[in-house]
Nucleic acid binder design. Structure first.
Lengths: 327, 327
DNA sequence: ATCGCGTCTGATATCGATACCAACGGCGGT
DNA sequence: ACCGCCGTTGGTATCGATATCAGACGCGAT
């Protein structure tokens, strides 16, 4: 930067201002500076700026994985909003592990982000303490939480799962098998399973452990889970999978085995991924605003960083039960 | 850090060493320091360290989008290898735009990464100049390039597309429709189309513009492209789509219209996404090592940063034609 | 006892941009 | 003519960790 200042015949402060707040520099000098910048191919050193100003123009987000398109959608939307406001989004993958999340939070904080986004509201005690004491805006996304660390944006996974299960009961299904995610520290999974159980119990159907199968989130796991459930309880008349990926695995396996859907076996999913409506039969599922979650989280952060606080700390964006031909 | 030093009764340098290269500090003092760190919840400020040492422990990668699982796979693999070596991966999305790529490269360089990964070998002149003059290790992934800026890891998209087209001709298909991506500045798309045309011409089949349809990468675009192609040329007997997403869109649309695959219309894709083998009929496609690309790119970078250069600048990882029932 | 070497520790300068404050010139108001 | 304000500019200290070098200490060899 000193080189640019010399080249333009001004002080370093003026160069700094010309780049960060051009309106404070006279047009004439600003032109000289931009010329010098171009001529010398000058690129400022963010580390120095961050160190002095405590502003990194960076927001950190932690998701379980980006391979799953549902998180990718949210990230993409969040990234766009932040970019427009002059922030960079840095992404970390916890791989569904709370310890990994904690480690990521630690290294992220070391990089001085201006806000942190985490997925879910379940964290290690140390992670929660780190987030709280960081003094940064923190947004917990995906599953709303009544008492967030700071702010929370998402839907009630409990309500959504509850609504779907109630719907299936209304349709007359009685032996509803449930395929859920592995749930070490995953509150979405926990809440979805709780919603299923609550709706069953309200419907007067006893809870049966045999009807529940847990699986990682991939097509094959869904297929395998169906096989296992049917082996245990051949009288199952409906499957509710806590993720469309699993539900699609179930559908594909049912097709393979010639099981008629929905006549012999109804199938419902959760997420409404792009493929859901294109399956045969099209999949009944829960749709929720993945992009809006990202946008809203980013909006909250940007407002916060611009001093415009907001009363509302918990934003529940709502879901929609999309009824298609698989049920 | 000064606080930690005081608490532990040592100098700041010793604290710094205890954290960065513990073997240089006696066990006794190291213990005092780690205690102090824990007690004060000290987290070092990366910006300061980066500024002084010129080491950010960060690698930047730019991909078109992370919503597409094929890029997510590569990123995930790359991220893992880098993490193990003590680096953070920071991801940027160019959204298939060369100008956006250039802008990202600029802001990334400002953050002092230790290496940069970009997708493809097509860049704006300014972007190429930035990369070259940055003096950083640069890896261009996905599509190998004979004269890379620095290093290149991927497959020959031309060869892969060429091989598939040749295979389709051998199977006896003669009116091969081609659905490709939009190709402003996308060398993968360009090379795949070129491979298709080269194989046709070698097979003595004249090139027909009517047989080519370009589309964005989503299921609906694939479906729509099929409709348009069939409207123009009802005698098409085979579709080669430059991406499985498009091919799956074609398959779904064919199923919907009751077009028999492969009897009336063969379909081939490119990428071998998880769903390809689970479609009905399972999709013939090109499989290539998406994870290995990420790992290899990361390996090259790590070796480079540890001073262990490598002769080979272009790593071609090879592809595989996976023949299934759709052709 | 002395020397030399290796191991460990600390004081200080430094990385590059920016916060903070001072200074300067021009201009309108009294 | 003088004052004071605003818009603009530059000098200097500073953010926090680390490179660099010097010093302290222990231990074996002579």
């Amino acid at each position: 930067m000193a080189d640019v200042a010399r080249e333009a015949g001004v002080g370093t402060m003026t160069v700094s201002r010309a780049l960060r707040s051009p309106e404070q520099v006279s047009e004439k000098i600003r032109a000289r500076i931009t010329d010098a910048v171009r001529k010398l191919n000058y690129i400022p050193n963010t580390a120095a700026g961050t160190l002095r100003s405590n502003r990194s123009h960076m927001v950190a987000a932690i998701v379980p994985t980006i391979s799953h398109s549902i998180f990718a959608d949210t990230i993409e939307a969040m990234s766009e909003v932040l970019q427009r406001a002059g922030f960079h989004l840095v992404i970390g993958q916890s791989n569904y592990g709370l310890d990994q999340e904690e480690a990521l939070i630690r290294t992220f904080i070391a990089r001085q982000p201006e806000a942190i986004v985490v997925t879910g509201y379940t964290h290690t005690p140390a992670a929660a303490a780190l987030l709280k004491s960081s003094g940064l805006p923190v947004v917990e996304i995906w599953n709303t939480c009544s008492s967030p660390i700071d702010a929370s944006v998402g839907i009630s996974n409990f309500d959504a799962s509850h609504a779907m299960t109630r719907f299936l009961l209304q349709r007359g299904y009685r032996r509803i098998g449930y395929i859920g995610g592995l749930k070490r520290g995953n509150d979405r999974t926990v809440q979805r399973e709780a919603g299923y159980r609550a709706a069953l119990s309200e419907g007067g159907i006893p809870y049966e452990r045999e009807l529940i199968q847990r699986a990682p989130f991939d097509y094959d796991a869904g297929a395998k889970a169906l096989v296992q459930l049917l082996a245990r309880r051949p009288d199952i008349d409906c499957i509710f999978a806590a993720s469309d990926i699993l539900a699609i695995g179930v559908l594909l396996e049912a097709n393979r085995q010639g099981i008629a859907v929905p006549e012999r076996l109804a199938v419902a999913g959760f997420d409404d991924v792009g493929l859901a409506e294109r399956m045969s039969p099209p999949l009944t599922t829960i749709r929720f605003p993945r992009k809006a979650i990202g946008q809203m989280a980013a909006d909250l952060i940007v407002e916060r960083l611009q001093g415009r606080a907001r009363e509302q700390r918990v934003v529940e964006l709502g879901f929609e039960l999309v009824e298609r031909q698989s049920t």
